[in-house]
Design a protein around this nucleic acid. Structure first.
Length: 112
DNA sequence: GGGGTGACGCGTC
DNA sequence: CGACGCGCCACCC
């Protein structure tokens, strides 16, 4: 597979999102290198080349809302996958306050 | 190389 | 956290 420039960067970050946590597009962008890639992140996941190894369902917008157009078969599918990992999002919205993937969150988990 | 597009973010009202 | 608009940047044609 060829490197798709920034896309590859983005995929790498998304791949590192731990189960049971979600990340925002802006956050992915920031971790990938540029905060302004938020839009590019969306595009990158849209053309997700390897859904099996790239958990794009763990990526939500800054408000915690799941995507309306999902590569797996609709936002509904994304909700199922998230709940399967213990992330409640019945209304299609995730509580970022609790489930957003941050270093701080990881530390707290380990500390607990 | 120019232009259109998009699974976004943030300020504003 | 309702709606609207602009900015942002990479990708495809």
């Amino acid at each position: 597979m060829k490197t798709r420039g920034s896309f590859d960067r983005i995929y790498e970050v998304v791949r590192q999102i731990p189960a049971g946590r979600v990340a925002t597009y802006g956050q992915i962008a920031a971790l990938a290198g540029n905060k302004r890639w938020a839009r590019v992140v969306g595009y990158a996941l849209h053309v997700n080349p390897d859904p099996e190894h790239i958990p794009c369902f763990r990526v939500v917008n800054r408000r915690g809302e799941v995507s309306s157009a999902f590569a797996f078969g609709g936002g509904n599918r994304q909700i199922e996958l998230l709940e399967a990992e213990g992330i409640p999002c019945a209304d299609g919205v995730v509580d970022l306050k609790k489930y957003q993937w941050t270093r701080r969150a990881l530390e707290e988990l380990e500390h607990l």
